[in-house]
Write a protein that binds this DNA or RNA. Sequence first.
DNA 1: GCCCAGGTGGGTA
DNA 2: TACCCACATGGG
Length: 216
Amino acid sequence: MRRYYRRLWAHFGPQHWWPGDTRFEVILGALLTQNTSWRNAEMALGNLRRRRLLSPRKLGCLSAVQLSRLLRPSGYYRQKTRTVRSFLRYLEKRCAGSLNRLFRQPTPSLRTELLSLPGVGPETADSILLYAGQRPVFVIDGYTRRVLDRHGLAPAAAGYAELQHLFQNSLPPDPALYNEYHALLVAVGKTYCHRQQPNCPACPLGVELENRHARG
DNA sequence: GCCCAGGTGGGTA
DNA sequence: TACCCACATGGG
């Protein structure tokens, strides 16, 4: 997988992910961007930022109705209100509201705990682990799946863990590398591997596309 | 009007 | 396990 990384890096350059100034902001972004454009998630984050609510304590003081109004532009806002509030409750109860304490846990048990929260699935948990916790955990998202499938690097039906192993087994456990690689996969997915264009024209990974077609 | 966007959880066979 | 569906806003 290293060669693809090098190609993407050569084409797109550094992506400066995750967009977000603090760990808490990164976590909220991961919760709010679920099946939603980053632009919409950012609108909701902007609502919180303007009101200076970007801390676990401040956010925890809001009622569900108040919070849901601010999260509205991110879509699925009732669900996301529940998700954010249950994360805040977990953080308060388990870690006395401290993100330092949260990230003191070893990666496997922290991942298990995150996955036990309602509204937190594998992609969200791994985004939190990698982008807020600097853990060497590769994030698999919709773009990653599409890019891998489009270029014949993995079957479309592959499961989350299978795709994650594909990267983690062929790369050193380097959070900075995983960070940049995932961001680059999103970049190529957004720019070239569109849903309605199976050819993926002018894609920097085009050579592999030809291989895939040759294999039938 | 349509399609798409950095998923998750619940239900059914 | 494998599908199906609800969840919702905003931009192109």
